[in-house]
Design a protein around this nucleic acid. Structure first.
Length: 267
DNA sequence: ATGGCTCGCGGAGCGAGA
């Protein structure tokens, strides 16, 4: 019995509904986790997802910015929205689904980008990002007895050297500064998470999920970053078949700057 | 050679993304 879960920062779900539909029709993941939906709950285009068989929808949106949503062919229960940093931002939603006799809590995150200046004293957005990551360190993969866990989302940090196009040139660029990358690796180690993308793609290999809108030719420049992640509790590791990064989606009509990342499991 | 583009909001141009 297979299970597939996709994470995708969509950068406005209403504007990009055509490519979301294209993706779901072509790849049919069991569950799709979206970030940066940029709409309020009542504006989420739920009908379009229901028509495709995704009847189980949970949304944590807000006006204009941020926002996350999880749409699923499998029933979702015990949904929860955690307000990290007490900012009132819509950056997290989770729920439990059942697969192969297991109960699995699926977390969907949108971590703050952090602005330009990597100095928390000078840049409140960077301070917010660091506080957010600090709070995530308390999130354990075994938080609920008898419940496995999967954590996906746009974490806005590329932790390893080959998660960016140039480690040296990125060390002072927000998303790859040591305080961020060390912080994220501490979230992984303290929480007891498995980085499923790096379980299947060796750290010696470049791996990106995001390419800037500003490059003249994103594919030729190939200056990407691995900002999107899929983690799990250790018990699910042996069930991972593969990870698919759909790079071609960056070249679709009016694309997001992030591409869908899918984890495929078998029982 | 990173910031050059792309969003929402609102009805011009700005804040935000990363």
């Amino acid at each position: 019995m297979a299970l597939s879960i996709t994470t995708w920062n969509i950068n406005s779900v209403r504007l990009r509904l055509p490519i979301v539909v294209q993706f779901l029709e072509q790849f049919r993941p069991d569950i799709l986790c979206l970030q940066e939906i940029k709409c309020q709950n009542e504006e989420f285009p739920a009908d379009a997802f229901r028509e495709l068989g995704y009847d189980n929808i949970i949304v944590h949106g807000q006006k204009g910015y941020h926002g996350v949503a999880t749409v699923s062919k499998l029933p979702l229960s015990e949904d929860h929205r955690q307000d990290y940093c007490g900012m009132g931002d819509a950056r997290h939603i989770s729920a439990i689904f059942e697969w192969a006799g297991r109960r699995i809590r699926l977390h969907n995150f949108y971590v703050p980008a952090g602005g330009d200046e990597p100095d928390p004293a000078a840049n409140p957005k960077f301070a917010h990002k660091l506080s957010f990551v600090d709070e995530m360190k308390a999130l354990r993969a075994d938080a609920e007895p008898g419940v496995s866990a999967i954590l996906v989302g746009d974490l806005n940090i590329a932790p390893f050297e080959n998660d960016v196009w140039s480690h040296k040139q990125m060390l002072k660029i927000v998303s790859h500064t040591p305080v961020e990358t060390e912080g994220l690796l501490e979230v992984v180690s303290r929480g007891g998470w498995l980085d499923l993308m790096r379980e299947t793609v060796d750290p010696s290999q470049k791996l990106y999920t995001w390419w800037s809108y500003r490059a003249k030719d994103w594919a030729a420049a190939d200056r990407g970053r691995r900002l999107d992640h899929i983690w799990s509790s250790p018990d699910l590791g042996p069930h991972l078949d593969r990870i698919e990064v759909l790079k071609e989606a960056r070249g679709w009509d009016r694309p997001s700057d992030h591409v869908p990342v899918t984890a495929r499991f078998s029982a």
